[in-house]
Design a protein around this nucleic acid. Sequence first.
RNA 1: GCCCCUUUAGCUCAAUUGGCAGAGCAGCUGACUCUUAAUCAGCGGGUUGAUGGUUCGAGUCCAUCAGGGGGCACCA
Length: 506
Amino acid sequence: MRRVKLERISALGRDPWGHRFDDHQPIHDVRALEPHVPPKDEAGHQPPGPVARIAGRVMLRRTAGKAIFLDLRDWTGKIQVFCGKSQVGDEHWALLQEMDLGDLLGIDGTLGYTKTGELTIFATKITFLGKSILPPPEKWHGLTDVEQRYRNRSVDLFSNQESMSAFLSRSRIIAAVRSTLGAKNFIEVETPTMQAIAGGAAARPFVTHHNTLDLELYLRIAPELYLKRLLVGGMERVFEIARVFRNEGISTRHNPEFTMMECYQAYGDYNSMMDLTESIFTAAIKAVDGQFVRPLNGRSVDFTPPWSRWTYSELFLEHVGCEIHDTVAVASKAFAKGFDTEGVAHDVLVSNLFEEYVEDALEGPVFVTDYPASLCPLTKRKTTDPAVAERFELFVQGMELANAYTELNDPILQESLFRNQLAGQKAEDSMAKMDHEFIDALKHAMPPAGGLGIGIDRMVMVLLDKPSIRDVILFPLLRPKGQDSASAEPLESENRPEPKSEFEGM
RNA sequence: GCCCCUUUAGCUCAAUUGGCAGAGCAGCUGACUCUUAAUCAGCGGGUUGAUGGUUCGAGUCCAUCAGGGGGCACCA
């Protein structure tokens, strides 16, 4: 039926798909013209107000004989449009008969009030900018099915304004992260997404293959080792907003590809990074709504800096109830909790107990500092206590939002720690390999440095109070919905002829 | 990978102990130049996720499979 209307619109000499539509105003700006709308005269008549030209999607329609009320929405807001037959003329009135919910229209008219006092554009001209030949979702409930919202994001965005506003906020948050770093003289760089050795974090990588080089490549699990090479090269402050890929489970807090901001500051340390983290969050909050006391999961979190800072061992003592170095007490606590303690290293038990007792109890925002050195091999130890690493993590309601270190720049120690780490790995994880080129780079001397990583998706979740990471990633990974499961034919890539490089030079 | 829940019209949802698959919105036809999820009258709309089983009879019970959600595990 909607397709029939396409032809009728063409028959009226109009293009249902529209063309360039210059000088239209964002609906938000049009609404801001309200003070310029002249008051009604004694007879209750509305003199014409400011001229307006908008483009938007028809969300709602109310017909009343020879008048039609439309609610038009663009990405800045919504406004009512009045179309009266005598006001728009027969030609445009005929066009309006072919209009459906979901269509994109351009409207020229003047601003004024209706009898009921609603700010309205009184249309004089209607332009089709895009005919929707699929019906939009139900006008009141919209798309509520979560699967549909993730799978069919186009429809979700135009029918659920809170979804649109979340992604607009995400964009502003990322812009705030960029400008904060830029203002502190960090430069933005791009490092390889495809890496021969996927290093810089403990995670399983995705594997891919380069045909011409016949090379196994991995999608990066972190940009870290490349950013540090830049420190060696003399780029003293670098950052990357990096998409990283980890071949692991999916949950409300994990998507296989996600966005991480990593930055490195030469001649700094983890304390510099704590201050920087507060600056970044402060700028991001100002970019969203400026409210430092924010709702989160039905509770409230106060982001007003400075945030509290506690050492790992202080928190361990407080929540677990024994000294971190008390081997016997730790083992008995772990055993009481039901952990397997047989032959498990003391530090592993400590780490498990910490995760079990402490992390969930951290309302935050709180910096947890000074981790046991054995848990973080890429970190410089404290000069006063070599068993403690200069590292912090930022927690909010038990969720880890940021992770920072005083980076290890001793290539000899780094290499031996790498070897120890690799020696302890299961065969399954043997993809991890020694990155000799990275070690060689360090041998040219990397400045002492602070390094910081912030999980952008989680940061957005927390600032916008979204319970699932899928609410802040436009296109989260979902299983492809097979039309019929038989179409999932086995890939015989081995036998397939090499595709010709049709995109050479692109 | 394991456990629980879920899948009915384009969308949002009903359907009693197993007994003719329904409503609202959207759509179509008509009325109405100030409506606010407009209203009023009429009409059309379905492989109940898929396959098999039990039964005189399955949306409902059973099995398998698929998608999705939540939790656990893996993982920062």
